[in-house]
Design a protein around this nucleic acid. Sequence first.
DNA 1: TATGAATGAGGCTTCATTCAT
DNA 2: AATGAATGAAGCCTCATTCAT
Lengths: 224, 224, 224, 224
Amino acid sequence: MDKAKEKVQRFRAREQRILDAALELLLEHGEEKVTVEQIAEHVDIGKGTIYKHFISKTEIYMRLLMDYEKSLTERLKSAVAIAEQGDITVPARAYFESRMANPGKDRLFQRLEEKIITLNLASEMIAKLHDLRNSNAAALNRMFEKRMEQGLLKKVPPYFYYSTYWALVQGAVELYHSRSFADVIEDRAGLMAFIMDVGVHIGNLSHPRGSGEPPVKTPGPGID
Amino acid sequence: MDKAKEKVQRFRAREQRILDAALELLLEHGEEKVTVEQIAEHVDIGKGTIYKHFISKTEIYMRLLMDYEKSLTERLKSAVAIAEQGDITVPARAYFESRMANPGKDRLFQRLEEKIITLNLASEMIAKLHDLRNSNAAALNRMFEKRMEQGLLKKVPPYFYYSTYWALVQGAVELYHSRSFADVIEDRAGLMAFIMDVGVHIGNLSHPRGSGEPPVKTPGPGID
Amino acid sequence: MDKAKEKVQRFRAREQRILDAALELLLEHGEEKVTVEQIAEHVDIGKGTIYKHFISKTEIYMRLLMDYEKSLTERLKSAVAIAEQGDITVPARAYFESRMANPGKDRLFQRLEEKIITLNLASEMIAKLHDLRNSNAAALNRMFEKRMEQGLLKKVPPYFYYSTYWALVQGAVELYHSRSFADVIEDRAGLMAFIMDVGVHIGNLSHPRGSGEPPVKTPGPGID
Amino acid sequence: MDKAKEKVQRFRAREQRILDAALELLLEHGEEKVTVEQIAEHVDIGKGTIYKHFISKTEIYMRLLMDYEKSLTERLKSAVAIAEQGDITVPARAYFESRMANPGKDRLFQRLEEKIITLNLASEMIAKLHDLRNSNAAALNRMFEKRMEQGLLKKVPPYFYYSTYWALVQGAVELYHSRSFADVIEDRAGLMAFIMDVGVHIGNLSHPRGSGEPPVKTPGPGID
DNA sequence: TATGAATGAGGCTTCATTCAT
DNA sequence: AATGAATGAAGCCTCATTCAT
């Protein structure tokens, strides 16, 4: 049935429009200030219709969260694949860039996730989210272990590396938004490059980092 | 009059109890789930009494915020003083330890501050807060500049250092709470030490960091 | 769609019921003692429903105010039209009767308006209200000026006439409610007629007023 | 006991200060916006002390009301006495001037009285107030009756005269404050004089009112 | 199927009055 | 006698979700 297909398609399309609208409004107004009614208005549908697609407002947020995490994972996966064939800094850079591409968005999702966890809504979906997030750990671990065996990285449990790196990126995201730093930071791009440079050299043993070159343009050999 | 003094003292004591209760509830239930009524109940006083001490819920939060920031500043100040006479890693460690002493609290205040700023409540007090926070910047800047002149640190604007360091600590705080990392991180203390070690060596030029020794126990000469 | 129309109609009807209920309660209990909850109960709807129709309690009051003022203006307008063709006392009588038809209501709206102005709520709507109110001034002014030119009225700025007349009616409204006068006034209708007679002869130069005839039944030539 | 006397005197003095403060604040901020705490602060005493003098906030208002009414009555009484010996317009003028001397005050008391009556507080004191108010009626009645017998005033129940006059003054007070008239009224003093002139000629039979002379400066023979 | 009117729990704040000190 | 901290009822408004049309 073409008609049925078409219907399903339109249904999906609208679902996406709801998600897009929600994200847009969330970014514009912040987590606490977006109402279901606003989303419906923005998509130009009735409020009730939203509940044909999602059982609750939380579910919309969860979907947004999953979608974001998926795109992050996607990008990281391909970066890891590249790293295995050569430049080991690629995943680190990819990850950093993915999250810093839109720090506002990144932070929004942090807050959303936190909120959902705190209020203990949708614990099942949160579990899935975490599974997804940890799915790359194995590949990364192998990478770090190899490097450690080669004596290029300080020997610590491999998760130290990505945990620390995550923390740094997380901090960079927060820094990006901090209003108390806003006045101080004149060269934001330079600072972000500096931070990334710190990140890709974590645990690095052999070479003194960034020996002279400007870190941004030719940022050392990386996590090697 | 002893009586008058006593009265004032009791008043202050109650005020502190309100603040303590608010903090406790905030830590337990998160920012959005604490009501004025709950706080009052917890202190076992009437709802209206709260408003004898604070003009609004926001003011309670601001007080909490300021108190936390003050203790941070205090500690940092004395650490900077020590650093000027010798061990330059002291402020970094002090700052890290201060914030990581109770990461839940630290993160709570991040959220609180963000909320207050976003909703544009109490902009005056926020300004004060930021003043307080920036009050150490000059001392830190001088420290970094001296190090750079001595060729011990990579030459970048001095605020790059404390910004990056702030970001790392901020990330560590978030990491501490992340439920998706919770299962992975077996040696939390070790990880935190590792992160701090990364922190105190940011920009370090002369020595390869952590050359062999376990970073926690004898963590190299630090930011120098 | 008949259905859509019907829905809209029902919506409007409910809105009117809310307004009616508000007015009724206001008249019964006074401005300060009517709560949104009471109104909702009286209409037998939920508290929140009220806010689907009006953004605030003040808006309900404003609507009531405007509706009243409109009916007053309406009546006055047609009376002025008549007056231009002949009996010049018509507007004065119409105005008096309109306001005295339900003095409680009239006074309620005075209080409401005052309150809204004092608290500086809805200043925009208040401006509209005043526009509406002043819209008849020009017509009245012309009337008075013509009379003055004909030597029938004492020469004063024309707004003296309607201001004074307004004051008299306003006073009559208050008199109507005054509990301290309540016991004294035996012939209320007679008194009101007497007051109106005073009103329509304000500034009158040519004829001694009410020369013998009972003022109510054949109330002299009036403002002419 | 001199001491006891002194004490009583100080007590009375403070009572008056409370009343003065209440009135001042009431005039400044309006009926709804004055709290007991404000009054106490203004007198620089404790809130509880106020309740040593008055059993409730309402009682303060009642006292203010009575005092105002008494001063009005006082003035009217002496004016009536003068009128009996000669100029009959004196009471009318006195009354008008008393109330218009501070229209804000006058209106405040109207509102206060209304509020107290509506909320049915202090009905006993209200009765007393009304007694006081009506106490002059007899004297006034006699005056009007004499005039009517002399054929100088239209024959109506005598209370018609003072009721109407009260209404006019009442309206003038409201007019004075009306914000919608505020823009229109350029010559307020002139208008008030005009209204008073209308007032003193109510029911006047023999002479056409204000025959030529400017009403303010030599305002006709009055109510006769 | 889509709608949006209706709901009502729950949050923050105010203030007259009480009462222990 | 004076105080002022404490009280708590009461008011307004928001918004996720339901359900009749």
